[in-house]
Amino acid sequence: MIEFRQVSKTYSDGTAAVEDFSLTVSSHTTTVLLGSSGCGKTTLLRMVNRMVEPTAGSVRIDDVDVATVRPVALRRSIGYVMQNSGLMPHRRVVEDIATVPRLNGAPRAEARRRAMELMEVVGLDPQLARRHPGQLSGGQQQRVGVARALADDPNILLMDEPFGAVDPLVRLELQRELRRLQDDLRKTIVFVTHDIDEALALGDQIVVLRPGGRTAQTGTPRELVEAPADDFVSRFLGLDAGRRKLRAAPRPGGGQVVTDDAGRPLGVLDDADGGPSAGAGE
């Protein structure tokens, strides 16, 4: 469990990035911090591994204040995936993935073996192991980033817009695979994004943020869509502009055709199992 207890961060230049933010992230779940650029998401995320020190309040992991843990040891126990992949340009993929196991004292051969395993887990061709990151596509780089973060089997995974820089199709595929991975691994994930669709696709819990790291609403994806707390949330989710408004009309062969607000068909709703997810989206 990760707890943010009334944390604030004012940077040395006077920017108040986060003010009095509190949140509990349950173990083995995915929490998405959702907000537009500059609202303090990265600042909040980096408080967990002490890449940022809060100016007030505390962050606790399983009831231990992270401020009492040595930063180097803390970071080696937490996976961190960055938007720009943050891969080491001078290291081969397999060496980069093996970084944290090596730092934690695993022998070279053991760390390599682990890295090769992880490449398979994240769906990377083992042939890429000897490449440098400059020789990989954006999507492959992000997979390497995820593999590196998972390499020493951390309980916590911090992901900062990890799929933000890849093209939309690859992004959907990476999201799908992250869901599949999470079904197996059940990590405690804090995921930062400004993409509402990504948040709805991945979050067990979503925190919608206003500028200054203030919480607009916290809830499950369903709670947010069903009952947005205010205009800000509803605008952010695209509920006001009709972007998420769907229509259903009877179909000659039975069931209903579901269309978006503009009348474009999205799928078919069977009368028998007219669940909320039938065919919509993707």
Partner: peptide, 9 residues
């Protein structure tokens, strides 16, 4: 920054 975040001293 990425190197520090992985836990390098």
């Amino acid at each position: 920054d990425a190197a520090r975040a992985q836990g390098m001293s």
